[in-house]
């Protein structure tokens, strides 16, 4: 027997394996998924049909930007924009470029947001969808630029702008450049608003830091998915600063609704229909005459 035979894949097992407790519960990737909330296993196929909402506990799982395009917009109407923008490493942060490259490969996106034009029940809208699988959805120069260009496109076309936020906040590796993206997106939003146009912000899990403290919170209509974590400073930071026990539901969408920060919490299954209705209420041309 040569040394190669030992590594041959198709050789017959000469021993039995007893799966560990952990391995028993772990299902091969792709076929089943485990709900991070109730730990129940669900068939991936069923889960996708259910909009990635756990059928047992109604937990809204994270979605990729492309998955959202699929469930939110009319079929085959989405055209993405600015996929060619490339992130650089302005502060020469160690291994930053490599991390970006890895995430780009993993997600198929050039950065943590996907922008473009599409139709929502026949109504033309510009959308920006943040993806927390890409560097926790953090906002650096490219994210800020893509969102700003999307807003400008909506202003130019005179149509509503809708954003799905999911972000840990400003991107540390780009320093103050990231901070300034908060202002950059805001000046664009101001111009969009001055044209009398509609801006809907849909806050999903998690929306925190510099993103919650800029465009995510200033929609004409602010909507959130159930139980989404939304806040400025992280729970641990606050607890350590004020040395106070925080309530259980602190910084959840429900907490924010009770504290006047949200217009509504909408279940993912109803999101498309409700948002389409809001857009309709703002764009119907009948309003001019009585």
């Amino acid at each position: 027997m040569s040394i190669r035979d030992i590594f041959r894949k198709n050789q017959k097992k000469k021993y039995a394996t007893i799966p560990t407790e952990k391995a028993k519960n772990d299902v091969p990737e792709g076929i089943m998924m485990k709900c991070p909330e109730c730990k129940k296993n669900v068939f991936t196929k069923d889960l996708m049909k259910n909009f990635k909402v756990c059928p047992t506990c109604d937990h809204h799982m994270k979605m990729t930007a492309w998955e959202r395009v699929e469930i939110f917009l009319d079929e085959n109407t989405f055209e993405s924009m600015d996929d060619h923008l490339e992130t650089v490493n302005p502060l020469n942060f160690p291994s930053y470029t490599e991390k970006i490259k890895a995430d780009a490969q993993k997600t198929g996106l050039n950065e943590a947001v996907l922008t473009g034009i599409g139709k929502l029940e026949g109504q033309q809208v510009v959308v920006a969808i943040m993806d927390s699988h890409f560097r926790m959805g953090s906002m650096g120069s490219v994210v800020g630029e893509k969102i700003t260009r999307a807003i400008e496109k909506a202003t130019e076309l005179g149509i509503p702008f809708i954003i799905y936020t999911a972000s840990g906040g400003a991107r540390m590796q780009e320093g103050v450049l990231s901070l300034m993206q908060m202002a950059k997106t805001s000046v664009a939003l101001r111009r969009h608003s001055d044209h009398g146009l509609l801006y809907i912000s849909i806050l999903t899990h998690p929306t925190t830091g510099g993103v919650s403290a800029s465009f995510a919170s200033v929609g004409d209509i602010n909507i959130a998915e159930p139980k989404a974590l939304i806040g400025f400073a992280g729970r641990r930071v606050i607890e350590q600063t004020v040395r106070e026990k925080l309530p259980e539901d602190f910084q959840t969408a429900e907490f924010l609704l009770n504290h006047g920060q949200l217009d509504a919490i909408i279940h993912r299954k109803e999101m498309r229909e409700k948002v389409a209705s809001i857009v309709h209420l703002h764009t119907t041309k009948e309003g001019a005459k009585w």
Partner: peptide
């Protein structure tokens, strides 16, 4: 098509 909107964006609903 009534859509209820909540909150004052300052303190509460």
């Amino acid at each position: 098509e009534f859509i209820e909107l909540h909150g004052d964006r300052f303190y509460g609903d």
